[in-house]
Design a protein around this nucleic acid. Structure first.
Lengths: 231, 231, 231, 231
DNA sequence: GATGAATGAGACTTCATTCAT
DNA sequence: GATGAATGAAGTCTCATTCAT
């Protein structure tokens, strides 16, 4: 069972910085019929464009003008859908990450030996996060989160704490089965760490030294979940 | 001796220049005597203030006006020491992280079983990074690095690649002694991951849920470096 | 419909944005109806204001703030019409002088004895230049041209060289008719010199000693084009 | 009898705009012995440097920092010799143009037929103005004079009106001898016009189309002073 | 007298936000 | 609903001027 794939997928071509105007619009808007559908589509388009721009330049440096151009709407239109730039940012995070929770909680409820589950965890992360725009959202959350304490709180409350609880439950049950030490259950962050590091790495150093996420995560999990000598 | 000719030129009505410099700001007691010392102290003060402001608001949102105020200098003074805002940022990263390399490389050269070395690694990280301003610099590097490709390159070349090489060497020797699987040496990032995650966590979620870095890192290392059954 | 989620983000204490646009400034009665007309009118207003300010203070010393005020627009509006201050200056010169060329070339094609044409030349200069804002533009060109090599080149290529060619043709034909010596055709600048000197004079010394351009030019032309003894 | 040549002659090498610091000083100050001599030499050096910078960038854009560097003194030193930037400018004009007056008045007193004098006028202008830094001073006066009404007044009163009077006297006497029409004596500016145009031209268009001042002036004078038919 | 580090007013320019069309 | 022209607050950076050394 997989989550719905992220919707914000249109990868607009990399933008010229302050170049010639060229074609502003993303072409004639898709002919969805109902007003509601068109409205939802616009919202999506704006979110997708915002993700592109925020990712490329950071929250402060991103210009709503560019977001509008990329989304194929007028600047004012953004304000019909979002209160302001900050709202747009929080909606972006919310829209992209919320759908993930269910999937992770489902996985966390599994009753399977850790060393059998680990591949599924890796695949889930790679397919649903690392290879999607969600990677960029998480990177944004990491980069900009500090300046948006309310967003951080929302994210912690709605997303992170639930994921942590799920993983912790998983680890506790594994510990009860003797597969991992009790102590690991105290730090579910350890499970996620290499994945997150890969996200950061890919943004900063990929071009100097590529990093194979899948392999790194598997290596990590093999070490963590390897059958071990009785202490 | 100033020329004594009468002033021929009407002061253009709108143009004011001629700031009243006011007495050179008290600040935190200028007691260093030589010009060189005072100059170095100012540079330091500016760097420290910049770290504060960049950390609190992010690079773009930080205002040099605030940096100046915090450093106890005038706005223009910053430009006597740094070419521009970006330069200031780069110098900050450079100045704070460069001194660390030697220490890490020394540690990486140790010929000690990993499970005996791990405590030293933890202590080094906690004392030299996590409990210092370096934590903030690394957080900045993570947050803002993407928008400063030159800085990312410098950081990779001068700092990261050397740390990675050191750790990799360490791991390879440990693998040769059968303490860890060969595969781990491929991903020195795994060693650092929990420490970095802790840095990010502390900035975003500490107040919702504190995180004991030391314990997390030790837990992680115990799992990684635990004596294991022969495969 | 604005998103109704609660505001997640604390308004960072120092950051204000959100200007209060105030009602769109009255200015000199916005009575043009179409958007295009209003846009053109604004462009004109900005150019006119710029000419005033540049003339009064020089390019460097003129403040766009004042230009905006004088034009009855906000500072930012200038940037909707011109890339930057320098562009504004160039457009000013271009817009004011380009229309002149045709007229001058037409006059230069005339087949009339010089001493009959000279009055027309004087009148053209006085009515189309000396008594209009073009006088100020030419003064600006003379004053500031050196610092705008691109503009000087444009001006030479598009304006001056064509005027010179026209005048030279005129003089050559006059020389062929024995009205002026061949040598004069080599220096069409001589024809224009008193007019230009008058422009400079009027800016600097008019109030100490007025200068009658018309009479000066006529005097000059009478001397140049007087019937002369066969050599 | 010739005027003393202008003193401000050291033509410092064209400056890099905002480049590497390189050698700031113009070498060890010349070993003039008395304090007074050294002081005068510094004043001269500053004036010469100011002329360079003002000429190259215009009054507003010229930086006293650059003037100081070029003169081989510290920025503060300028203020020991001149009240402020404007004073420096006026002193420059005064120092360079004042010495010229006597020479011109002497020439104006000559009792020689105009067509015999004209060559001397040309040579005086070319040697004492056009081929010296005085050309730049006059160009500056033309360019910036408007913004310094007091300077313009000084210039008119001390320099221009005396030159005009001299030339007018000359022309009147020539008219009395029947060499030129009375009317010309009304407009001594006509005599100077081509020379001034050449100064402007050389700054703006020389590289597109060179101009032979000497020849232009001679051509002009030949036309003005040619023996003419009795009317 | 000379220096040059320091000052701070002020300029240009950007861009989130508004609102008449 | 949608648009995009207009606004103006705010930020970075410059540079004339001062003054402790």
């Amino acid at each position: 069972m997989t989550t719905s794939h992220p919707r914000l997928v249109r990868k607009a071509p990399r933008r010229r910085r302050r170049g010639t105007p060229s074609q502003h619009r993303a072409g004639p808007a898709p002919q969805s019929s109902t007003r509601q559908e068109r409205s939802a589509a616009r919202r999506e388009a704006i979110l997708a464009a915002a993700l592109d721009e925020f990712s490329a330049r950071g929250f402060e440096a991103a210009r709503l003008d560019d977001v509008a151009k990329r989304a194929g709407v007028a600047k004012g239109t953004i304000y019909l859908y979002f209160r302001d730039k900050e709202s747009l940012f929080q909606e972006l995070v919310r829209a992209m990450l919320t759908p993930l929770i269910g999937t992770i909680e489902a996985l966390g409820a599994a009753e399977v030996p850790m060393n059998m589950l680990s591949d599924q965890i890796v695949e889930l992360f790679v397919r649903e996060v690392y290879e999607t725009r969600r990677k960029d959202v998480i990177r944004l959350m990491i980069s900009e989160g500090r300046r948006f304490p309310k967003l951080a709180e929302f994210y912690y409350r709605e997303v992170l704490s639930r994921i942590i609880a799920a993983v912790r439950g998983l680890l506790r049950r594994a510990a009860a089965r003797g597969e991992v030490p009790e102590a690991l259950a105290e730090f579910p962050q350890i499970i996620a760490a290499p994945g997150l590091i890969a996200i950061i790495w890919s943004g900063l150093f990929e071009k100097f030294e590529p990093l194979d996420v899948r392999k790194m995560m598997k290596t990590h999990f093999e070490l963590l979940f390897a059958p071990r000598r009785a202490p």
